[in-house]
Amino acid sequence: MDANIIIKLKNVNFYYGENRALTDITMNYRKNKVTALIGPSGCGKSTLLRLLNRMNDLIDGTRVEGEILYEDKNIYSPDLDPVEIRRKIGMVFQKPNPFPKTIYNNIAYGPKLNRVGSANLDELVEQSLKQAVLWDEVKDILNQSAMNLSGGQQQRLCIARALAMKPDILLMDEPTSALDPISTAKIEELVEELKKVYTIIIVTHNMQQAARISDETAFFYLGNLIEYNKTEKIFTKPDVKQTEDYITGRFG
């Protein structure tokens, strides 16, 4: 596999029972890049995101065909542990979902359980919070409940929590849809910083957000990958008319 490619999808089909939600998806994600997945509701972008760390395994009656290669191994091969995959491919959800624990324990819980960086937990907590640009705001209240933080802070805490597991890839499912513009700007700036170390794949309904923060953009429609290209190209002169119709609001 090309050294710049971190995940490779080959002819991936995905089914909810009899319904095919994704059709023959073949695409590569590049290392240390932000890739945005866009498309109207029900186009399969979140389904695809959840496929990348086997989150769909948790839904009954689902089925995957094709290959999703990460470090040259199919993540759906039976000998791979989904928990280990989810450690390497972390996820941040639409709504901030901190544990009802202290700020410190929100970060430390996962690593403790999985024995990641357990040699110095304090250091790991500090480092993760710093990476999520939250440290300065919470360093004096680490023992307070995470539930007292604002929505934007809670979302950055969730990012810090994912980073504490030392992942390679961060999946973000509409991470700012529940946040105000200032918190959104902070998360977007954070994404810019994080891509120096991590690979980020983000689902967003906010077209301007995709244009602002991603390097590459994939447009999905009815479970098909319609166009996948550099973000600048997609938002200035897409190759496919359907993409242009969608991003300019001539859809539906």
Binding site: M207, Q208, A211, I234, F235, T236, K237, E244, I247, T248
Partner: peptide, 9 residues
Amino acid sequence: RQPTAIDLR
């Protein structure tokens, strides 16, 4: 409107 693609051009 923050136009994109053909609208931006």
